[in-house]
Write a protein that binds this DNA or RNA. Structure first.
Lengths: 335, 335
DNA sequence: CTGAAAGCGCTTACAG
DNA sequence: CTGAAAGCGCTTACAG
């Protein structure tokens, strides 16, 4: 394989100095259009490829944003990753992605690698648990970092946090179920010690208290498999339960399958609401009511906030909450 | 923010030359253990971070692998991306990901950005359509590149291709349905002009021909939404149809919902089989039979092949097919 | 509007 | 086992 051509080769071919080539590369207006075209022709003829490593070394940015996700297999996060990546690509940034798989040690290692690569910024939905080994190096390196969907480091001045207004959403969903005449509403899925569960339960608890009703809690993983199992347990152990608000859509969709297996008619015998409103909610049978968190819009807003920080030094506010709203469908309304 | 410490700073602090520091960084055995420890202490004290851009410029590799996926929102590809990323991370490579969204122009642009970043290798599941603008620059730059799951560039000596043995899988699935006594088996979803559809249909057509049966074809997108719609159409237009093999699980899961809506009992009135065997197949109701393509194993094999190419120059064979097998469940077997 | 020169932080022969 | 020196391909003041 031949050596890749450099700006020196391009300069020689175009009959200018390499500074001029560099200026053309930057799109500087101080090069005559005619000259610039000469340079661009030379680049094309030589198959020139910009060498970012060299540019980076000299002081410019790498053009890389690191994205660390705790569970890349969850469609909610996948949608976030895909939308964020596309918004950043439109602004000229490539996205380095990694899945911490809810493992803080792995997460710290992955973050170390990203810092070595010189990422310009980081977006992280952190794994639960010890956060220092991941965040301290970011603070030391002064890398703009956004915490999304989960706050694991309290230094929100350094690592601004944004998420959805979950408490509002669960209150709205719970009031909706109460308004339909349900008597015993369960909250299914999620680990009680996690802040996101607490937020999603807060509105539920408040709405029940308003109505003088007792909560019914089935904690568990946030997966389809748990929902399937929860459907069985709830029928066996709580026959009076006539509605469920689920931690997320995966749990609710698992319950939907589990209740079908039990011969329970969802929407009348049991009313069901999920959380996140992933695409599948409108495509299940019956269609699943859900608290809509528009993750694609959230991802674009996150990209915009990050780009503002990178280009204009606009540090985002320490904590932001995006609005959510209930999308009622057949699983709670009935047919 | 203070300037990041460099090997010169580390060298000064440790009282050695910067060559020595560099050798320690490489883990060279020619530095005395004692000296190496001195250097490592200095690094820790200064909070030294390795600068890859500088190392790259001098000739070593960037430690970056590019991954380009045509549809990152499909759980099958998500699983592939997550597994591949984790296998590469274990070998010290970071993964730059991007979603071409089935758009060849975008794909070419993204690939250009990856080449600029100096990726050491590329794994691509290419978008359908014109491939030259994406692959030619890779050939020119001599970047090891693997085509997976779809072959869009015929130069498999340059861009080795690996996928699953789809034809075998669809033949097995079709024979299974015939063995259960079904009379009219549809193949639902997928665009006829795409090679992957042709492969998945090949075994179906062959098995039907063996049995002297007529094919029934409903082409369409490869999404839940199409499956939902196909269920309605198939009942309205082909009341004699008593089985369906679907292009993938998403279509089959959409059909599952659609058939439930139509009041059709899946597993007896209509037997259904998906393709890919994503996790959800075992969690739906009824459970979905599917042709299992173990994408996590495939991803790890892909990572191994790529790492072999990068480290030992082992070019993978031009075309490889991983075995698949039918996982029969209630949607075809009945209860 | 364009050119000559220094320097970014490493790695790598080459001496010693 | 360790040090001095050159050079990777760019960008950026600084002259002209």
């Amino acid at each position: 394989m031949k050596r890749r051509p450099t700006i020196t080769d391009v300069a020689a071919r175009a009959g200018v100095s390499k500074s001029t080539v560099s200026l053309v590369l930057q799109g500087s207006p101080q090069v005559r259009a005619e000259t610039a075209n000469l340079v661009r022709d030379a680049m094309r003829e030589l198959g020139y490829v910009y060498n970012r490593a060299a540019a980076t070394l000299r002081g410019s940015s790498v053009g890389l944003v690191g994205l660390v996700i705790n569970d890349l297999r969850n469609p909610f996060f996948t949608e976030f990753a895909a939308s964020l990546q596309m918004a950043l690509a439109a602004a000229g940034y490539a996205t380095v992605i990694s899945n911490s798989d809810e493992n803080t040690a792995l997460q710290a290692k992955l973050m170390g690698s990203m810092i070595e690569h010189g990422v310009d910024a980081v977006v992280i939905c952190p794994a639960h648990g010890e956060a220092g080994a991941t965040f301290d190096p970011l603070a030391r390196a002064g890398i703009p970092t956004l915490q999304v969907l989960r706050k694991m480091d309290e230094r929100t001045d350094l690592f601004p946090f944004s998420s959805f207004d979950y408490a509002h959403g669960s209150a709205e969903a719970t009031r909706h179920l109460i308004g339909l005449g349900t008597r015993r509403i369960a909250f299914v899925g999620g680990q009680d010690e996690r802040s996101i569960t607490q937020e999603r339960m807060a509105g539920y608890s408040a709405a029940l208290a308003e109505a003088g009703m007792e909560p019914l809690r089935l904690p568990g993983r946030t997966s389809r498999a748990f929902g399937l199992e929860a459907a069985r347990r709830i029928r066996a152990e709580h026959p009076d339960c006539d509605a469920a608000l689920c931690f997320n859509d995966l749990v609710a969709l698992g319950m939907l399958a589990g209740l079908a297996r039990e011969g329970v008619v969802v929407g009348s015998d049991m009313r069901l609401i999920g959380f996140d409103d992933i695409e599948e909610c409108a495509l299940s049978w019956p269609q699943l009511s859900s608290v809509s968190c528009d993750i694609a819009v959230f991802a674009r807003d996150t990209a915009a906030a990050l780009l503002g920080w990178l280009s204009d030094g606009q540090i985002p506010p320490p904590e932001q909450r995006a609005a959510v709203h209930l999308v009622p469908r057949a699983s709670s309304l009935g047919n």
